[in-house]
Amino acid sequence: MSENTSGPIHASAPSGAPATGRGWDRQQMADRLSEKFQDGWLVNLGVGIPTLCSNTDIGDREITYHSENGLIGYGPVLPAGQEDLHLVNAGGQNVSLKPDSVTVNHADSFAIIRSGRIDVTVMGAYEVAANGDFANWKVAGQKGGGIGGAMDLAACAKRVFIILEHVTRKGAPRLVPSCALPVTARGVVTLVATNYGLFAPTGTGFRVVELAPGMSFEEVRAATGAPLEG
């Protein structure tokens, strides 16, 4: 994986993850968000868990994936030996072309983003706040950070979906009343998928859209930093 990416990667399941058979795994989290993609959408996927959205069977819906490095429309990562070294996605992976793929320069790629033509961007995050703020470019005490295209995408895409583990490795909530970390954009998140379910920021808390199998409202409420609304 290249460092040329947007948003953090959470390398392994946190210790607060529910026991096997309860909650969603990463692919299921991605699948829940992919179900919301509508026919004809232009979708930008951040690295890490969001890339799993491209594995979801989307039936007969036509979805085009946009990669910030100027690649519009791409297919799966190619196996070793079949890569084209001139062709990478935002994570530096050697992806494949589709029949209608095109490449543009970086200014044009971000013109597509800044002018509001991305229907949804799906990103990882460290924290999401009840008011739709989120943080994904800098951890506490870090000098510098990794923004990549995340701020452009978060400020300008029509919708921002976030996918993240519900709690940190130490068990602290990631769905919080307000972000403690420096934010990527303010008031933009409309839908959050975690291993515990699907949630929508309401301004004052998080509304449960769907609970993952085996998760109770009470249990999820205890693991959420902001008020959980039924």
Partner: peptide, 16 residues
Amino acid sequence: ASFTAATRPTDVLPFT
């Protein structure tokens, strides 16, 4: 640059 730290906070770049 658009990255002055690694994407994974635990990674250390030669620049860091």
